[in-house]
Design a protein around this nucleic acid. Structure first.
Lengths: 245, 245
DNA sequence: TTCCATCATTTTGCATTCATTTTTTGTCTC
DNA sequence: GAGACAAAAAATGAATGCAAAATGATGGAA
């Protein structure tokens, strides 16, 4: 079933990396997932063309489902479609990034507010756990570990909001930034790192007290600071990440 | 050019109602806009099938661009695609609506916060103008006028946030609710109406003082209350609006 | 009559084909 | 050698065709 895909040594990700729609039933859905991951992971340089024919061969499919997937990715903001001139990986300007970070901040801020309404003690404990883990990474200057724990904390907050619509939107925007986010080596600034830790303390504190409005403020400000750290070092024009050679 | 559309008495909207992407250059883009409006305006009953062939004739196109548009609408959450069983207009459960309203609340709350950072006196004056207009409608018990002015106020706040990404996301979610929103005849409750007016006073006040965090709170609460009013009267299962006969 | 199996019809998913547009290549002129 | 024009090649956008799946109808057995 599912039309024998000849497995042309496709380098694209396995069919379930991103925790999203799961509409793998159709070929189009499968292609969509793989293509999205392919782009999000930065396999195509920013602004680079997305060659239909080549991808078709790579994926062993015809152009129809591929083009459908491209249309969807364009709607998601990952690529852009130039009339009669094909698809390109969207080049995010500095302004685009600022906007994206702000929207993410708004969504997390909302997530925190909602989470306070229904979060359980167990969930808070789990987040505390992650927090201490993150603190350990901080002490060991382990950027990568810190980054991962940090991300899981934020995801936990979003999950605690118990709002699938929010979660999906959050994942969508996160995907758009991901290419850049990894390059945001803000940890260079020791001071910012320490500040972020303090902010996380405050987040936990507000969460424990279920102080929704307050948490909302703290989260927004936290993300705003992150935005500053991530973006300020970019030179005007655009995205700071290229495809690995 | 652009393939003679035989104008089969298509009831769909003119090609520029919704203030969105404007990718009318391609046939696909045109179809996308028209189809989106067609669905948003409730021309197909909730949960009803979206017959490909029929729509193709109606629009005078082949199935390929139509199917591409359907895929995009599905990604936007307006319709859903059942494997091998075609597209249906998404049936929003009560829970879906609650979630959507909350996300809208979060986005507007964010918009208010951002707006406070850069809004000009002139913009505030314009919003005040709308506010008084709305108050007039309120006094005259003109539900429709009130509703429109109200909507323009909220849109003005979003515009004042100067964040295109936010604006697009906002428009997207607004589209999903639109079908239901009109049926939210919360005005029946005189008291809620008066309350909403008071909340709007508070919104304006916070805006004048550029009190971002405060405005954020007020807006969230305002939308939360709106959600209550709009949803509480729905009987459990789902959407409360049908296609007009 | 009701239930279920079988077959025809419709619909969907994808591949293929066709018509344009864009891009590249090659040649000619200055 | 640089630039301009023209033709060829490639890529895109949309239509059509075909196999698989689903829907609906028909008929037979309990």
């Amino acid at each position: 079933m599912k039309s024998t895909i000849p497995d042309t040594g496709v380098p694209i990700t396995p069919p379930d990396a991103n925790g999203r729609d799961r509409q793998e039933a159709s070929l189009h859905g499968e292609i969509l997932l793989r293509l999205r991951d392919y782009v999000v992971e930065g396999n195509i340089p920013a602004g680079g063309r997305v060659p239909e024919r080549q991808l078709c061969e790579m994926l062993g499919i015809s152009r129809t489902p591929l083009r459908e997937a491209l249309k969807v990715l364009a709607a998601e903001g990952l690529i852009e479609l130039l009339p009669n001139r094909g698809a390109r990986v969207r080049q995010l300007s500095r302004r685009d990034l600022e906007e994206l970070f702000d929207v993410m901040a708004g969504l997390e801020s909302l997530a925190g507010r909602l989470a306070c309404e229904t979060i359980t003690d167990a969930e808070i404990t789990a987040i505390e756990q992650l927090h201490y883990e993150m603190y350990g990474h901080y002490l060991h200057r382990d950027m990568h570990g810190y980054f991962q724990a940090n991300q899981r904390i934020h995801e936990s907050i979003v999950a605690a909001a118990r709002n699938e619509t929010l979660k999906t939107a959050y994942a969508n925007f996160a995907g758009r930034i991901r290419r850049v986010r990894y390059s945001a080596n803000f940890a260079r600034k020791r001071q910012r790192w320490a500040e972020a830790m303090r902010e996380h303390e405050a987040i936990l504190d507000a969460l424990r007290r279920r102080a929704g409005s307050e948490l909302s403020d703290i989260l927004f400000q936290h993300l705003r600071n992150k935005r500053m750290a991530a973006i300020e070092h970019l030179t005007e024009p655009q995205e700071g990440v290229q495809a690995s050679p």
